[in-house]
Design a protein around this nucleic acid. Sequence first.
DNA 1: TTATAAACGAGACGGTACGTCCTGTCTTTTA
DNA 2: TAAAAGACAGGACGTACCGTCTCGTTTATAA
Lengths: 201, 201, 201, 201
Amino acid sequence: MTATTTVPPGPAAPRRGRPRDAQAEQAILQATVALLSEVGFNQLSIEAVAARAGVGKPTIYRRWPSKAELVLDAVDRLAPPFPTADTGDPLTDLRQIIPELLVRLTSSPVARATIALAGDPEMVSRLGERYLRPRREATADILHRAIAAGELRADIDVEMAIDMMVGALVYRWLVTAQPVDADTARRVVDMVWESLRAPGR
Amino acid sequence: MTATTTVPPGPAAPRRGRPRDAQAEQAILQATVALLSEVGFNQLSIEAVAARAGVGKPTIYRRWPSKAELVLDAVDRLAPPFPTADTGDPLTDLRQIIPELLVRLTSSPVARATIALAGDPEMVSRLGERYLRPRREATADILHRAIAAGELRADIDVEMAIDMMVGALVYRWLVTAQPVDADTARRVVDMVWESLRAPGR
Amino acid sequence: MTATTTVPPGPAAPRRGRPRDAQAEQAILQATVALLSEVGFNQLSIEAVAARAGVGKPTIYRRWPSKAELVLDAVDRLAPPFPTADTGDPLTDLRQIIPELLVRLTSSPVARATIALAGDPEMVSRLGERYLRPRREATADILHRAIAAGELRADIDVEMAIDMMVGALVYRWLVTAQPVDADTARRVVDMVWESLRAPGR
Amino acid sequence: MTATTTVPPGPAAPRRGRPRDAQAEQAILQATVALLSEVGFNQLSIEAVAARAGVGKPTIYRRWPSKAELVLDAVDRLAPPFPTADTGDPLTDLRQIIPELLVRLTSSPVARATIALAGDPEMVSRLGERYLRPRREATADILHRAIAAGELRADIDVEMAIDMMVGALVYRWLVTAQPVDADTARRVVDMVWESLRAPGR
DNA sequence: TTATAAACGAGACGGTACGTCCTGTCTTTTA
DNA sequence: TAAAAGACAGGACGTACCGTCTCGTTTATAA
């Protein structure tokens, strides 16, 4: 999604004047990502992004009102494509989707930089809406399928289950400052699955 | 612990010249905490801290080498006192210690500001050493007692169990931007406990 | 004269395409004059002129290559109509023409703005050619008539005499930042006339 | 005179904190003068002055609130030392002082740049107070001595006489964009002197 | 009548400079 | 000798204009 400040009123809005340069936008986002992984969020300056992208500063400010918004867009643009799985077996799906998601996330060059956004509550909710929600919903679907199939208890708190799986891994990554490997991720999935299993299965 | 750059050579060292003003140090830390909760880590400036504390900038730089170190100290100084529990029953202990810890943590005015420190891997490890480790170890002790008592399986990964409990709650707090209440924390504890219980108990 | 960059090749050149909008030109010049008297030459921006005139910036740049040229044209367009006099008596003519000229000049809203153009030698010569020369020549004519009539000495430096009259008044206006009144102007004329009078008259 | 914004309250005011660097001030004024003669007032940027002087921009803004004030000070600092004369004969004094003053003024590398200041009435009065007034008064003294000696009429307007001499020459320099030579200046002095001479001398 | 050509307003473009704020250091006076 | 005060060189901020360049839309002559 593009962070245009003025949204065109409709599909047939003519947008007078010279249109915005799509190449410039690409160059800015790429420069942002490159610099994020080089110097981190706090040391990132709009000035440097403009220089690296070969673009004037106003061209950046015309599109994004702040550094945080720019980084939000850049991270979003660069987010690893969401892994999906529907093998018919929910546990297999989970064992595939969660490790892949977390491994990708925590090995992304901008992942840690993204954390700095979490200092601002507003940014957290923006990140949540654009980045986390779709991934959460896919995971929730799998769990609901498992409940429908009788594999998991019917009274479980699906949201909490997701928080346990994702939270444990993200927290571990954050605190230990080391990437999360697929094996660890799978063990977490199994532990949570075990604690939610329907009795007698 | 105070981050003095020049450590006194011994307990009986007279330290020539005018001694450092302990009041100034207090004022600086208090001003830091106040500003952290007002404007957040990213917007916090040494300049503003000095002004609010009624202190010169060099007085701050003499004691702390960077904004991050200053914040680290301020957060540490303000950290809620660590809750302990040893009722004899490990589950009761966990049900007491974890909710109290998390509720305090996530309602602290500087909690969110602390997150911003996580953007810098160096700061993460510093935070971990000074703040998280003692709390982790107390929790690990409880789990080890439970294993020794035969209440939990002997082959469990204690570190991972802690990450699941704490991570789930921290992640939920971060992502939903809402405080964590004692009831939610207790449910997480119970879920994890259940998944680790020794068979037949 | 309008400072068109591309001069039409002749009076009967049809110039294909849409002709330039005369209304736009008027609006631009008027906006220029208005802004000149409001903010002065140095603070005048093409951007503001375009906005005030309800015109795009290229429409201005298409006609005038620089701010100085635009202001030159605007000043020229607004110059007070040149007073003339030929009563038969040169002193009477001078007493009429010089005060009127100077009073008009120094009370014009753009007069002071014009001074700023004098910072650029190129602009000075342009201003001289277009604005000052015709007025100078009319004044010189009067002095020459006076010489021919034997009222002034034959060996006087006419150019210098003009500089004394006009220069004294312009300088006074510039330095005292007050308008020049007709009475003062007439006294200057009389002083200079006196110092140039033919002996025995 | 130095354009310190905050004037020390008295001669014995200690002024706590690090004092302003006199070398920096010199470097700034010299850089200003150099750039003025290179690019003129309108093209002069504070940025370039700071770079040339090897100084941070705030160091300039701490001392001078605007480009105009800085230039005013630089011009003042560079003003040619005021020529004086008191030979006993007022006409000789005038013939000496006026040409020297005007020749110096109009040949200074920053003279034309100074003209741009005249676009702002405020600057004109500042310039007048600091630069023109003392020179005017010296000239007025000579004329008053001549009146007292009976060489000039008692009823003359001294201010106007000065405006005629100085104004004619400045105007000529401005309009013809050529330097004023000593001979021309002397002829102007003589013309004005002649028109003011007491009858019978 | 239909191209073709040029001007129109709007507004984005790469830039430069603005004047402000903050950085981390250095220098002075006071205690 | 550390304190406060405050100036220092430097660098990034976000803004205002610069002068140029598309855009899509008139408006007029030429084919």
